[in-house]
Amino acid sequence: MRALTANRLTDGEVVFWKQGQWVERFADAELFAPDDAEAEAAEAHAKNQITLVVEPYLIDLMESEGLWAPVSYRERIRALGPTNLNHGKQEEGGAFVEALLHASGAARSKGRVDLIRRK
């Protein structure tokens, strides 16, 4: 599966695409099948929302504890918050957060490459 993510312009908050809206919780993100062209369509649309988000990109997901988690370690940290302090999105707790925390293995996702160019 895949999800569309970005940082919100006004505050930099990590956000996820959900049927045309941007939501803050990864658990609420819309899931796209790997071959679902809707994902690219959403990404293209989001790229034009220059007053809403900064550099949206698609990330790859994998199954974890029956739920979904980003494949890349970096995207898990974005979805959860930093690992040194418990004051990011992970504060909320719950099954989705646990699934992310326990996701095993990691791989490069297309998203990280985009982000590296950002700076």
Binding site: N7, G12, E13, V14, I50, R74, I77, G88, K119
Partner: peptide, 21 residues
């Protein structure tokens, strides 16, 4: 747009990182 703005904010030490600015 972001490209135009990025260089201006960076001149003032403002980055966009993983979780926020």
């Amino acid at each position: 747009n972001e490209d135009q703005f990025k260089r201006l904010r960076l001149m003032n030490g403002l980055y966009l990182q993983l979780h926020a600015y």
